[in-house]
C-alpha cells in the first residue's frame, strides 16, 4: 500500500547531474578514441567502427533485461511501488538500446552482407527480444490501475527475462542447423580496448537514463499522491 508520506521523500538530484555529465563526456571520449586510434579494418574499412557502438549497445541491452527481472522479482516479493517504477524505467531504456542495436546492426549489415536484414542468429534474437519489450510496454500502456499494472508487468517482465536465453538458443540452433555461422576474429588490441571503453560509456549512460526515467515517474506519482492527500482531506 502506498503511504501518502511518500510525497516528502522524493529523490533528490544529489551528485546525479555530475554523473550524467561524466557519462556523456565518457561517451564522447570513447567515440573520439575509437575514431582516432583504430586503423581501418582490412576487410571492412572504417565500417568496422560501427562495432564499437553496436556490440556495447547489445551488451547493455542484455543487462537491462537483468535489471527488469531483478526489480520485477523485488516488486512481487516486497510489493514496493518504487521497484515497479524502476523495472518500467529499465524496460524503456532497454527497448531504446535494443532498437539502437538493431539499427546499428542493419547499418553494418547493408555494406557487409549486401542486405539490410539477414536472419543472423544474434540479430534475429535481438529482434524477438525487442518485440518482447514492446509487449511489456504495451501492457503498461493498456492497464490503468497502478497496482494491477505493477503486478501484471512484474509477471510479464519475469516471463520475458526467463525466455531470453531460450529465445537466443532456439534461434541459434535454427540457424546453425542449416548453415555454419562465420565470426571473424579480430585481434587488433585497440579494437578490444575501444570495445571495452564504449561498453563502460554505454553502461554509465544506461544507469543515468534509468535513474532519470525513474525520477520522472516518481514525480508523476508524487503529483497523483498529492491529489490523493487533498481528496482524503489530509493535507
Amino acid at each position: 500500500m502506498t503511504a501518502p508520506s511518500a510525497t516528502t521523500d522524493l529523490p533528490r538530484p544529489g551528485y546525479w547531474p555530475w554523473f550524467g555529465a561524466f557519462a556523456y563526456l565518457f561517451l564522447i571520449g570513447a567515440q573520439v578514441m575509437g575514431l582516432v586510434t583504430s586503423v581501418p579494418d582490412r576487410d571492412m574499412g572504417h565500417l568496422q567502427k560501427i562495432m564499437y557502438v553496436h556490440v556495447p549497445a547489445a551488451w547493455i541491452m542484455s543487462l537491462t533485461f537483468a535489471v527488469v527481472l531483478w526489480y520485477s522479482f523485488l516488486y512481487l516479493w516486497k510489493q514496493r511501488e518504487n521497484d515497479d517504477l524502476k523495472a518500467a524505467a529499465a524496460a524503456e531504456v532497454g527497448s531504446a538500446f535494443c532498437g539502437l542495436t538493431l539499427v546499428l546492426g542493419m547499418i553494418w549489415g547493408r555494406p557487409a552482407w549486401g542486405v539490410w536484414w539477414t536472419w543472423d542468429a544474434r540479430l534475429t534474437s535481438t529482434l524477438v527480444l525487442f518485440l518482447i519489450f514492446v509487449g511489456y510496454l504495451a501492457l503498461r500502456a493498456f492497464v490503468e490501475d497502478p497496482h494491477r499494472r505493477a503486478q501484471w508487468s512484474a509477471a510479464v517482465g519475469i516471463m520475458g527475462a526467463i525466455n531470453v536465453p531460450i529465445v537466443y538458443m532456439s534461434v541459434r540452433w535454427w540457424r546453425t542447423l542449416h548453415q555454419v555461422q562465420s565470426s571473424p576474429a579480430t585481434v587488433d588490441p585497440w579494437y578490444v580496448i575501444n570495445l571495452r571503453a564504449n561498453a563502460f560509456a554505454f553502461l554509465f549512460v544506461m544507469i543515468y537514463f534509468i535513474r532519470q526515467r525513474y525520477v520522472a515517474s516518481r514525480f508523476e506519482r508524487a503529483a497523483e499522491l498529492a491529489a490523493q492527500a487533498v481528496a482524503l482531506g489530509r493535507n
Binding site: 524477438v128 527480444l129 518485440l131 518482447i132 514492446v134 509487449g135 511489456y136 504495451a138 501492457l139 510479464v156 516471463m159 520475458g160 525466455n163 531460450i166 529465445v167 538458443m169 532456439s170 534461434v171
Partner: peptide, 10 residues
C-alpha cells in the same frame, strides 16, 4: 498476440 507471439518464438 502482442504479448504472446514473441514469447512463443522458441
Amino acid at each position: 498476440p502482442l504479448l504472446l507471439f514473441p514469447m512463443l518464438v522458441p
